[in-house]
């Protein structure tokens, strides 16, 4: 922990830069509100949600879950490598994590284009509005995580790596909750 982060109170007990944890906690609250909105909308429009949810491919969501979890493993191993002073290996693990993140985005883009080709857009009905908002907002976080990762590969101090990887794990954490709520529970 660097000197300029010593006055952050409880936040300085978490890995990486405390300001990133302010962002992470805020994002968890936002996604928590999304999950609640999705669940309440399902109660209000059960037939619509069931009819639309069967259009989603649960296996595609499962593949994306596995890609992100494996990316998270590579990111955690990057922190370990940096902690042991092995910058080259840290960069390699971060590169692997980024490639898997790109794979996640590729699958998501293919899913979006498939749904759009079937005529399901953001304005089709409440289900698709929430689907595109939640998964799109999550995908935007994946993109931001990749940008941060690229910067950290260039400047891989221990604090930078911990900060970047903490954000990446938050992206993981949101997805493992989003996947059952949107794709599996019917």
């Amino acid at each position: 922990m660097s000197d300029d982060t010593e006055n952050w109170g409880a936040l300085s007990e978490l890995p990486g830069n405390p300001l990133m944890w302010v962002l992470i906690l805020s994002e968890l609250m936002v996604f928590g509100a999304f999950f609640a909105a999705f669940s309440v909308s399902r109660v209000l429009h059960p037939a619509m949600f069931l009819a639309d949810q069967v259009r989603l491919d649960r296996l595609v969501g499962g593949v994306n879950t596995m890609l992100l979890l494996t990316s998270g493993l590579a990111a955690a191993l990057a922190v370990n490598a940096r902690g042991m002073g092995d910058i080259r290996r840290c960069r390699l693990w971060l590169g692997g994590a980024a490639l898997l993140g790109l794979g996640f985005l590729g699958v998501k883009l293919a899913e979006y284009s498939d749904k759009a080709a079937q005529g399901f857009g953001i304005e089709t009905d409440t289900f698709w509005t929430l689907f595109y908002l939640m998964t799109g907002f999550h995908a935007a976080h994946v993109v931001l995580g990749l940008v941060i990762m690229a910067i950290v590969v260039w400047k891989p101090s221990l604090e930078n790596v911990e900060t970047c990887v903490s954000f990446w794990h938050m992206v993981d954490l949101i997805w493992v909750l989003l996947y059952p709520i949107v794709y599996l529970i019917r």
């Binding site: 979890l69 998270g72 794990h169 954490l173 493992v176 996947y179 059952p180 599996l184 529970i185």
Partner: peptide, 20 residues
């Protein structure tokens, strides 16, 4: 439904405990 949500929460716990 319980299995899907339970697995999701358990994975979130593992991310917090092990990864983070």
């Amino acid at each position: 439904t319980l299995a899907a949500m339970g697995a999701g929460v358990l994975k979130a716990v593992l991310i917090l405990w092990a990864y983070l």
